[in-house]
Design a protein around this nucleic acid. Sequence first.
DNA 1: CTTCTTGCAAAGGTTTTGCAACAGT
DNA 2: ACTGTTGCAAAACCTTTGCAAGAAG
Lengths: 159, 159
Amino acid sequence: MEKRVNHIKQQLSAHGYKLTPQREATVRVLLENEEAHLSAEDVYLLVKEKAPEIGLATVYRTLELLSDLQIIHKLNFGDGVTRYEFRAEGAEHHHHHLICLNCGTVDEIMEDLLGPIEHRVETEFDFQIVDHRLTFHGVCHRCKDQVTDPKKLVGSRVT
Amino acid sequence: MEKRVNHIKQQLSAHGYKLTPQREATVRVLLENEEAHLSAEDVYLLVKEKAPEIGLATVYRTLELLSDLQIIHKLNFGDGVTRYEFRAEGAEHHHHHLICLNCGTVDEIMEDLLGPIEHRVETEFDFQIVDHRLTFHGVCHRCKDQVTDPKKLVGSRVT
DNA sequence: CTTCTTGCAAAGGTTTTGCAACAGT
DNA sequence: ACTGTTGCAAAACCTTTGCAAGAAG
C-alpha cells in the first residue's frame, strides 16, 4: 500500500506534479476501494471522512490528473456518472467487466480474452489497436435463479 | 426505406404508440444517417430542417422510446453525449466499434467476433450473457501514417 | 371525452471553470 | 516572488420533467 502510494508519487513528480495531502487522500481512497468502481462523488464522500476540508472540484481535478497520467481509468457503465479504477500495472490492456442487469453488480474478468481477436482486427481492418473496452451485460450467478427472462431486463441502456 | 419506416410504425403500434409526424421525422433522420452515430442534439438539428417546430425534448422522448422498444441502441463513446444507432434486425448482438484516437472517426465491425469468448465467459464465470459492448481504441488506416506514437494519444478517455 | 403527445421552460444532475487565497520552493 | 494547487461558487452541459395546450380516435 505505502509502496503503491509512493510509486504514484513518483509518477506525479516525473511529470512535475506534487502529491499534495488532498491528492494523497484521494489516491488512498481509490486504493482502499479498488474493486468498487467509485464515482467522483463516491470518492469525494470517502475522502471527506479523512480530510473534511477537501472540495469536490479538487477530487475531480485529481481524478482527471490521474487519468491523464494513465494511473487510473475512466469507466462508463451507462448510469450517468463516470467511474474510476486503477490501471493494472504493466498490463497491456485493461480487463473486462460483467454487468448484471438485475442487481447492477459489476464483476471483473482479469484475463485479457481478446488477444486472438485483436490480431484479426489489426490485419483485417488495418486498425492499430491501442486499447479496448469489453463489457458483457447479462445475469450474474447470484441472480440467475430469480430471473426468468433476461431479455426483459435489457430496456434502455447506454454504452 | 419506406419499408423500414413502416416496420417501425408497426413496432410502435404493437406497443400502443403512434408514429406521429415528429416521431417519423426523427426516425427518418436516423435512417438517413445510419452510420453517423448521431447525438440527440445532432438528430434535433437535422429534424429541425424538415420540421422546424419540433422541440428538443420531443427528440429525447422519441429516442428514449425507440431505445425502450429496442429499435435503436444507446452508445457512449466517452465524449459526454449519448449517441444512437439502429439495432441490427434479428442480430443476436450488436456489432463492434473502432474508434480512432487521432481523428475521432468511429468505424464498425459488422461481424460478431465474440462467439467463442462468450461461451467461455458463460461457463467459466457462470454469467448469462444478454448483450455485450466491444470497442477498440487505436489508429485507423487513414491516420496511421501521421501518427508516430499511438500510446501518446490515449490521454484521458472514458469507457 | 379521454388518452397520448408535444413544446416550452424550468429543473436536475454531473462535471468544469474563474478566481482569489494558499503552499512550497 | 513564482508556480502549482485548493475551495468555493458559479457556470456549463446534457438530459429529464411539469404543465398547459394540442391532436386523434
